Computed example of a mutant assay.
Amino acid sequence: MDVANPRTYQRATETATHIRSALPETLQNPKVAIVCGSGLGGLADTIEAEPKVELAYGDIPNFPRSTVQGHAGKFVFGLIGPQRLPVALLVGRAHFYEGHSMDLVTFATRVCKVLGIETMVVTNAAGGLNQDYAVGDIVCLNDHLNLPGMVGINPLRGPNVEEWGVRFPPLSDAYDLDLRRRAHRAWRKLGLDKQKRRIHEGVYAFVVGPTYETRAECRMLRTLGADVVGMSTVPEIVIARHSGMRVLAFSLVTNIAVLEAGPRGDDEAIQAMSKSELHVHLSKGKATHEEVLESGREAAKDVQALIKQVLSDYSQD
């Protein structure tokens, strides 16, 4: 079972020192980090063209490499908004299902803390369990279900390092209420409430993956109170809160989960179908990674505008 490495603090400090050495002085003290989920790498376009520094994960000491399509795998530093707020963008992330340890999955978040990050904006692509949601809607997360964490796959398992935070961090306030309020204000300020795409607040269920959920699993998660489901984000949230960072998180709904039970083989209508008809019938609602990326491309501009507005308003306080 995965256990947090007590040397993580030392390794994160080494990595942060290396990163700072590659940055001009104006970018060395970012206050906000943005994690770009599947199909949302375009968030890097929200920052100013100059100064801007891109560092490939493979060139950063101790950093995990993302192997997932739609995750570029680079750290981007620049300025955002009229106040030219210094920000760091993680374009792509490491996932537990890729074979990384939970310690490595959350390593980038630890590095952000050492760099002086105070606020994490985390994005992801997720399946919609709430049947009131539509593909392309955005969900501002207000809580989560950490199913792997409940059975021992928790990034804080193992010796606690006091330099990071307390042994038993509370998570009842994990998703910053002030930042969520700002998100809804920004949505209206941008006039996005006048369009078809909607913004919601909801609960994210974290599962390991990489398989998409079965129909029975989707019904179970919905019964437990989850509105969306995905394979990331929560470990980063746990570490960010353990380190004292504020958190704002968004899920982009890329597909709507199928909650009804699957067809039965002894159903008379099923008995009468050809093989091709059976395939079409069973494929209804099936999620694909290509679908996730396409939905991300379509909604990217609204997500970019929303986050940029939130951070612009945030930096003026």
Score class of each variant (00 low, 15 high):
Tyr212Cys: 06
Thr17Trp: 11
Gly158Thr: 08
Phe75Asp: 03
Leu252Ala: 08
Arg93His: 07
Ser274Arg: 10
Ala305Gly: 12
Pro170Leu: 12
Leu311Ile: 10
Thr26Trp: 07
Asn124Gly: 10
Ser232Asp: 00
Ala56Arg: 15
Gln131His: 11
Arg167Thr: 09
Phe77Lys: 06
His100Trp: 12
Ala108Glu: 03
Tyr175Thr: 01
Cys36Leu: 14
Pro159Asp: 08
Leu147Ala: 04
Ile270Thr: 10
Arg157His: 11
Ser283Met: 14
Gly225His: 11
His71Gln: 09
Ser274Pro: 07
Ile153His: 13
Glu290Lys: 13
Ser101Cys: 02
Ala12Ile: 00
Thr46Glu: 04
Leu224Tyr: 09
Arg7Glu: 10
Leu27Val: 10
Ala269Asn: 15
Arg222Ile: 03
Arg84Asp: 04
Phe206Gln: 12
His289Asp: 00
Thr46Val: 14
Leu192Cys: 06
Pro61Met: 12
Lys74Asp: 01
Asp137Cys: 09
Glu48Phe: 10
Leu156Gly: 06
Phe168Trp: 09
Thr223Met: 11
Pro61Tyr: 08
Thr13Val: 12
Val310Thr: 03
Val151Asp: 05
Phe107Gln: 04
Leu224Asp: 04
Ser66Phe: 04
Lys189Asp: 11
Asn255Lys: 12
His184Tyr: 10
Leu248Glu: 00
Glu291Lys: 10
Gly116Tyr: 02
Phe96Ser: 06
Thr13Met: 10
Val229Gly: 00
Thr233Trp: 06
Ala257Leu: 05
Ala72Met: 04
